[in-house]
Amino acid sequence: MLRWIYRFLNSSIGRKALMASTGLLLIGFLIAHLAGNLSLYKGEGVFDEYAHFLGGLEILPLAEFLLALLFVAHITMAILTTLENRGARPVKYAVAASHGKKTVSSTTMFISGLVVLIFLGKHLWDFRLHKEAFEKAPAEVVQTALSNPLTAMVYILGAIALGFHLFHAFASAFQTLGVNHPKYTPALTWLGRVLAVILALGFASFPLIFWLSQGGAH
C-alpha cells in the first residue's frame, strides 16, 4: 500500500522535492523568527513579552516537534543526495572549468548547511537546553549569550552561512518543485537573493550590536 511512498522517497526527484519543500517551510520559520527577534529593538520589555507569549502557547510542543521534523527531513535528504552525488563521479577531471552558471552558493550548499547546523546546536544550547535559559528574563539571556565574543562570532558565521545557503536555495526549491515560468522565475530568483541578504543581515545584526555595545562598555 505504501510502496509508492517508499519509491518516491528513494527516487532522486522525490528526495529533492522533500528537501525543497521542507527548505521552503524552514524559510517561512526563519522569517517569523527574525520578525519576532526584531522586537528586541523595541526594548527589552517588548521582547520579554513576546517570548512569554510564545512560551505560553499550548501548541508550542507540537510546533517544536514539527519544526524538528522539518530539520531532520531536510538534513537527511541533503546527506543522501550529497553522498549520491559524491559517488557519481569516481574519477575527477584534471581540469574542471565552469560553463558560467554554478555559483559559490550553489556549490557549497552542504558546507553552508553544515555551518548553519553547528550554529543551530550552539543556539539551541544557549536558548533552549541550557538551564540558565529558564532562570533569567529572555532579553537577559540574549544579553549574556551574545556578550561572549566567541558566541557572537559563531552567531555571525551562522548568519553568513545561512545567507550563502539561501542565496541559491530559494529559487532552486521552486525549480525542484517544478515551478519554472518565464514570467515568475526571474522574479523568484531575485526575491530569493534579496531574502537571503535580509535574513543574513537581520540575524547577524543581533550578535554584532551586542558584541559592539559590550566592547564599548569595557
Binding site: 519509491r7 532522486s12 543526495t81 557519481a88 560553463h99 550553489s106 532552486s172
Partner: peptide, 23 residues
C-alpha cells in the same frame, strides 16, 4: 516514473540546480 527509476538505477547523480548542463 519508469524513466526516472531507470535513470536513478544507472548511477547518475542528483540535480541540485547548478544549471551547468544547459549552459
Amino acid at each position: 516514473l519508469t524513466m526516472v527509476e531507470r535513470m536513478d538505477a544507472e548511477g547518475f547523480g542528483d540535480c541540485t540546480n547548478h544549471y551547468e548542463c544547459s549552459a
